[in-house]
Simulated assay, not measured.
Amino acid sequence: MGTSTLSRVDVTDAAADLLRHLAASYGPLMFHQSGGCCDGSSPMCYPVGMFLTGPGDEFLGVLPVAGIDPVPVYMSKAQFEYWKYTHLTIDVVDGRGSGFSVEAPEGKRFLIRSRLLTDEELEAFGLS
């Protein structure tokens, strides 16, 4: 099975609802997870174009959220080395996260839930 049918990232229904709400105000969105300390280790949501990715970032895939543009997800390559054997799901909880992420004024914060890749996923991503 090829990687085109598998994804490294997903989104919960609650996070998708918040993304639709945020997209109505900010337009197309994207996520970046830097692996920095404190809130830097949380997924940060930005309007597309407000955070520039580069050669130090790994593209993980897009979140298909009904009603808005697909939401690309990136992670710093250094952090990806630690997380490459995991599938990531972006979720949302009550509480204030970083002021840099667009959900902060909503009293919500995005977070990552992870699980180990299955044998099929490991093979598809060339990790077995």
Rank of each mutant, 00 (worst) to 15 (best):
M1V: 13
T3M: 12
S4R: 11
S4K: 11
T5Q: 11
T5R: 13
L6A: 05
L6M: 15
S7R: 08
R8G: 04
R8L: 15
T12H: 09
D13A: 15
A14G: 10
A14Y: 01
A14H: 09
A14W: 01
A16Y: 02
D17N: 12
D17W: 00
L19T: 01
L19D: 00
H21Y: 06
L22K: 04
L22E: 07
L22D: 02
A23V: 05
S25K: 12
S25F: 02
Y26L: 01
Y26D: 01
G27F: 06
G27K: 06
G27R: 05
P28A: 15
P28F: 10
M30K: 09
M30W: 02
M30D: 06
M30I: 09
F31H: 09
H32S: 06
Q33W: 03
G35S: 11
G35L: 08
G35D: 09
C37R: 12
C38I: 06
D39Y: 13
G40Y: 03
S42D: 14
S42Y: 14
P43E: 07
P43L: 07
C45H: 01
C45P: 02
P47D: 10
V48S: 12
V48Q: 15
M50S: 14
M50H: 15
F51L: 09
F51Q: 04
L52P: 00
L52K: 13
P55K: 07
P55Y: 01
G56L: 08
G56Y: 06
D57E: 14
D57R: 03
E58W: 01
E58D: 05
L60Q: 03
G61C: 10
L63M: 10
L63T: 05
P64V: 10
P64I: 05
V65R: 04
A66H: 12
G67E: 10
G67L: 07
G67M: 08
I68Q: 04
I68K: 01
D69W: 04
D69R: 11
D69F: 07
D69C: 10
P70K: 07
V71I: 11
V71D: 03
V71N: 02
V73A: 07
V73S: 05
M75F: 05
K77I: 06
A78S: 14
Q79F: 08
F80D: 08
F80Q: 11
Y85Q: 13
T86E: 14
T86A: 12
T86P: 00
H87S: 07
H87T: 06
L88Y: 03
L88K: 04
T89Y: 03
I90D: 02
I90E: 01
D91S: 15
D91T: 13
D91L: 05
V92L: 04
D94S: 12
G95W: 07
G95P: 09
V102H: 00
V102K: 00
E103L: 00
E103I: 00
E103H: 00
A104R: 03
E106L: 11
E106V: 10
E106A: 13
K108V: 03
K108T: 02
K108W: 04
R109I: 03
F110V: 04
L111N: 08
I112N: 13
R113D: 09
S114N: 12
R115S: 15
R115I: 06
R115M: 07
L117E: 07
L117S: 08
L122K: 14
E123Q: 14
A124Y: 03
F125P: 05
G126H: 12
